[in-house]
Design a protein around this nucleic acid. Structure first.
Ligand SMILES: [Mn+2]
Ligand SMILES: [Mn+2]
Ligand SMILES: [Zn+2]
Ligand SMILES: [Zn+2]
Lengths: 158, 158
DNA sequence: GGTGCAAATGCAAGAAGTCGCATCAGCCAC
DNA sequence: GTGGCTGATGCGACTTCTTGCATTTGCACC
């Protein structure tokens, strides 16, 4: 399930989490409420460890295993989606306005978003050749950026 | 540095590791010799944890931190290259005959290789638009395969 | 064959999760 | 409001990997 881009839709998505859980026979607990509060104030990306930390600031009794399990549930609801950062660790896209992947340079550690139009050559090729539907949020491409390859990855430009 | 595809080139690449280390002022130790022996008998992919285990079978005194540090060194020599598996953990391509990425279905847990021709639409688009050189060995694409999307990801076909 | 320096190792502590299990508590029915 | 079912939490053990530091050892040079 995807979430729309307007401010109202974003606010609505968070407000509806409680009801969406109950519809599925799942429960609305103080721990989940805290996590949703923190996520609603988060823009862009967050790792599990970062979320544990931010929840602990508000409630020091926060338990990591509960946070990680709830992240799984929230992803099933479609309110967050994970990709993988430079080191392969999961990073959650929090209500992404526009679905995107990530591009990392292994030379300079730079990173850029990959928007849908840029990914479409791959997405279309896999769809046509295999009927495979690529998850763009989950796409992480690594390589060497233009600056780093002309620098040979080491020298500083003048 | 990339390694060729013939049997002779593969054997040669392993045999030259000792000299390639020394050229760089690095050392050839019993621990490194063991790891190279194990890797030379490995086809395809291996994780750090798997390599630790296989080294321990031959030398129970094997220490994980030594293995992980040596994997970094061997990757710098170009004799292995890492990508990321389904869970984001590093997986090392051991003397890959043909460089390839991986495609994972999140519905059925299926996986397939992505060979260069299939990746070339993405590789060319990023090269043209950004001058970015994609590392195909490092590419992991996740999504839903044809069977899983026609099944709605759950039903069994008749 | 010794010597010395820098690289590598072993070890221990810690980070980031994951999992099983006993206990707790949301929530639906009454 | 109470009770009870079942899902969620807390907790502890474990996995996989990382890092700092003291100690060891490869190897270039003589
Ligand atoms: Mn990587
Ligand atoms: Mn993933
Ligand atoms: Zn760069
Ligand atoms: Zn599938």
């Amino acid at each position: 399930m995807s979430v729309g881009g307007s401010v109202a839709e974003r606010a609505g998505a968070w407000a509806s989490v409680r009801d969406r859980l109950r519809e599925r026979g799942l429960r609305w607990t103080p721990q989940r409420r805290l996590m949703v509060d923190v996520l609603a104030q988060t823009d862009g990306h967050i790792t599990g460890a970062e979320l544990v930390e931010r929840c602990r600031e508000l409630d020091p009794a926060t338990i990591p295993s509960t946070v990680y399990r709830t992240l799984d549930v929230l992803e099933q609801l479609g309110v967050i989606r994970h990709g993988h950062g430079r080191d392969g660790r999961e990073e959650f896209h929090v209500l992404p306005q526009n679905e995107h992947g990530h591009l990392f340079c292994s030379g300079c550690s730079g990173s850029w978003d990959i928007e849908a139009p840029e990914a479409s050559p791959l997405v279309r090729a896999l769809r046509r050749q295999r009927g495979f539907a690529v998850d763009l949020s989950h796409l992480t491409v690594v390589g060497v950026c233009e600056d780093c390859s002309s620098d040979r990855g080491v020298a500083r430009r003048s």
